[in-house]
Write a protein that binds this DNA or RNA. Structure first.
Ligand SMILES: [Mn+2]
Ligand SMILES: [Mn+2]
Ligand SMILES: [Zn+2]
Ligand SMILES: [Zn+2]
Lengths: 150, 150
DNA sequence: TTATTTTTAGATAATGATTATTAATAACAA
DNA sequence: TTGTTATTAATAATCATTATCTAAAAATAA
């Protein structure tokens, strides 16, 4: 496999991994690529399934440990869901709103320019020091709506 | 104990429990009151701890089963948190924004009049049929800020 | 009331995603 | 190439929640 076939995002992370003294193993590279390639905020299982064909001996525990490492370095954001496992965003690892389709389980990024201003207003009115947020909208995505309209 | 010492909210729920053919047991009453009395969106463990002194034989499983029942009837809203267990809102069992203090773990209701309009705008621009939401702001509450400023 | 039926409580086992453990392996500096 | 040591893979442990099962309690019938 061509060593230059990585996205800029993957190259960035690889550099910071090396700088922090971590080793670049084939497993890590494959897991990292799987995370970065996905646009649907994958779960650990989804990444595991994507890596398995190329690295059949890969352990699920290794995927989990890579997630912990990437979280520590701030390179992945965990989106917690009780049921059916957490989801991850390696492309944009900072808090931002999401649209969650409850039918196909896809998760899309949402644009909400008003959010920052809203947060500031809330902080002023409540006295809270707001440091982060979790903003999810649940519903049915356009594709699932089209399918449902037989 | 006076049978009329319940809040209107508790009375409402009791009526609907009876109407649905469920029995009002002392355990259920105690658990229900503990949920309704709390302003901090308690966890199952917190409710269990509140009930234990009055009903020492109460089982944790009974608290969990009461939660399931109340969820089915739409009388409690579950707020999922991966770490340390879920939290519950019996006072306002419909989606609304929350302020979560990451220091003392308290959860407060937040007023966000702009949210409905925001949701509609987002639905229009994305084609999603938005049915629900989860809006949490994480930070340090005023009391914890005061304590931190020794 | 007493008997019969159904619901619920309490104890505890099972579940499932995640984390911890540990011996074997391999990345990488010298 | 070799040695050091991080990492892997397999698997056990964890922990909140759910399921199971029996006894007790409550509703219902007789
Ligand atoms: Mn995202
Ligand atoms: Mn609330
Ligand atoms: Zn969909
Ligand atoms: Zn606080």
């Amino acid at each position: 496999m061509n060593v230059h076939s990585n996205s800029p995002r993957v190259e960035d992370i690889l550099q910071r991994l090396r700088r922090a003294g971590h080793r670049i193993t084939p497993q890590r590279l494959a897991i990292l690529r799987a995370f970065a390639d996905s646009h649907s905020h994958p779960s650990v299982d989804m990444v595991y399934a994507a890596v398995k064909p190329n690295f059949p001996t890969t352990s699920l525990a290794t995927v989990y440990k890579t997630v912990v490492l990437l979280k520590e370095l701030g390179e992945v954001m965990e989106i917690g869901f009780g049921e059916g496992g957490n989801r991850y965003d390696v492309r944009v690892p900072t808090p931002h709103p999401h649209l969650v389709c409850t039918r196909c389980r896809r998760i899309l990024d949402a644009e909400l320019d008003a959010l920052d201003h809203l947060t500031e207003t809330l902080a002023q009115s409540t006295g809270f020091r707001i440091l982060s947020h979790r903003v999810d909208f649940y519903g049915i995505c356009p594709e699932c709506r089209r399918k449902a309209a037989h």
